[in-house]
């Protein structure tokens, strides 16, 4: 089932796929950043694809490489029961298009990726930090982030939100 889908994908988006890897029955596609949204839209809505579930979305930091960051999408089709992994590389100054309009689950996952890596998602409805306090300095899952954080030696202050 999965293989047929890959053939269709190759036909439709051949120019966009940088590499295709298969290991232990899992298929990983590395794709270009440009046009990523169209590809994901096709994966979500096309009848021959039907990847209707976003299992996870996360970031990876390859410090020292160019492009530095990678965003990984783990997709699953509930109809066919197969999975697909999409990877895309981008640099610090680049933005990536949100997929929260394709899969609602992406909204918080993208916020977490932004919180931890500082990867910005364009057109996201609510691009704020999700796990860390709003005034936090830095992005902790970056490889150059010290484990104690940048403000470790400064006294910690709490700001209570004003009651409205």
């Amino acid at each position: 089932m999965n293989r047929e889908k890959i053939e269709v994908l190759k036909r439709k988006f051949g120019s966009q796929i940088l590499s295709l890897k298969e290991e232990k029955g899992e298929i990983t596609l590395l794709v270009k950043l440009e046009g990523l949204k169209n590809l994901l839209k096709a994966l979500r809505y096309d009848d021959e694809m039907a990847y209707d579930m976003l299992i996870d979305l996360c970031g990876v930091d390859y410090l020292g490489e160019d492009p530095r960051f990678e965003v990984v999408y783990l997709l699953r089709s509930l109809r066919d029961g197969d999975r697909l992994r999409i990877k895309v590389r981008l640099n610090e100054d680049q933005e990536i298009e949100t997929v929260s309009d394709l899969w609602r689950a992406a909204e918080w996952l993208e916020r977490e990726t932004y919180d931890m890596f500082g990867i910005r998602f364009a057109n996201h409805p609510d691009m704020r930090r999700i796990l860390l306090p709003d005034d936090f300095n830095g992005h902790p899952l970056r490889k150059d982030f010290p484990a104690e954080g940048y403000d470790f030696d400064k006294p910690f202050e709490v700001k209570l939100e004003e009651e409205s």
Binding site: L132, G138, P140, A147, E148, G149, Y150, F152, P155, F156
Partner: peptide, 13 residues
């Protein structure tokens, strides 16, 4: 937890 997300002692607040 000598870490970025833990307050190093509640006497700070």
């Amino acid at each position: 937890f000598r870490s970025y997300n833990v307050v190093q002692g509640v006497d700070q607040i």
